[in-house]
Design a protein around this nucleic acid. Sequence first.
DNA 1: TCGCGTTTATGACACCCGTCATAGTAGCGG
DNA 2: CCGCTACTATGACGGGTGTCATAAACGCGA
Lengths: 192, 192
Amino acid sequence: MSASTHGPRERIVYEAAQHLRRTGVAGTGLREVVSAAAAPRGSLQHYFPGGKDQLVGEALEWAGTWAAERVDEHLARMRRPSASRLFDAITDDWATDLASRDFERGCPVAAAVVDCADTNDAVRQAASAALQTWQRPITEALVAMGRGPRRAQALSTLMLCALEGAIVLARAQRDTAPLRLVARELAPVLDA
Amino acid sequence: MSASTHGPRERIVYEAAQHLRRTGVAGTGLREVVSAAAAPRGSLQHYFPGGKDQLVGEALEWAGTWAAERVDEHLARMRRPSASRLFDAITDDWATDLASRDFERGCPVAAAVVDCADTNDAVRQAASAALQTWQRPITEALVAMGRGPRRAQALSTLMLCALEGAIVLARAQRDTAPLRLVARELAPVLDA
DNA sequence: TCGCGTTTATGACACCCGTCATAGTAGCGG
DNA sequence: CCGCTACTATGACGGGTGTCATAAACGCGA
């Protein structure tokens, strides 16, 4: 969960993602990111000639694969996996993260969509791709549990919708209740 | 849905809300809002001495009450209202709005939360209040349908979570499918 | 030791931001 | 007509933004 491999480039991408989670795309200053990453400012134009768009894109990609790996970890840890148990684990992850950091950080993908869906198609596509990266292992797990591909896709979409919305509500009211609620209410649908 | 009463002040608030929906808080420039509202720039410091925070706060409040009224309209139009039918109507509203405007505009409340939950508590509180304003008529309708107050509250929270998340996913992939999906999948839970 | 890619350093650029100070104009009651 | 309030107009300020140009240091192979 910390700064992946130790190069400055990786640290910048990681720190960009974290900053995205807190203040969105427009609120994320490149100078600030670089200084938080303890990286030289000159590295920006060297490693990210595509400018801010490229950096944000890579941050989203990183976040997507990180989330996907996290899903796999949860699945590996379960002795008898089920859809509701997986969703429980994911929402619990987020509830813990939100509460422990005082609701500072949300989902970077949601931040990118909300800020850029209209004005920056490159970022929007990166967000969409990150979402797919995240969703794939969930869908595959559901298939492994016996659902048909279509049904698995629908259920994983439902999970991400409820999760993203619950994160927004949780941050708004500074309370993890929405996350616990969606986990509880969706369980019957997910396990049906 | 257009510019409420015709005063410059109202137009500014309305236009601020619309701009929030497109580019978030940080991406919303005051000069731009004022010019879109065809209002004099001087009106800003006259009507909103609290600065940008006040304007954003009022925009969120306006959006909250507007959404609440919309809920009441849907309920009034139904001959035999049910939880799933109400949720259908709401998601359908959003799907139509998103598609008709090419996924330009999302939910202003989500935008405010994503951008400011960490850095601007005044805006965060305004977002939370708007969410409550929106949720109340839904909860009350569910009570009128026979649910207990606690259950009604839980179900309305579930609706908003799924809706907010579905809006994010829909904008990311430029497809209203997530909205239709959550409406379909949640129906059994809502009507149980 | 030289040379040459890779990486870093730093300052400048033009632009947009929110806020404020200040002066101006309407419009209405007296 | 005056006077006062509500509103508008406009320019400036300080600061932050992403981007670029340019030069310096580094590090490794020859």
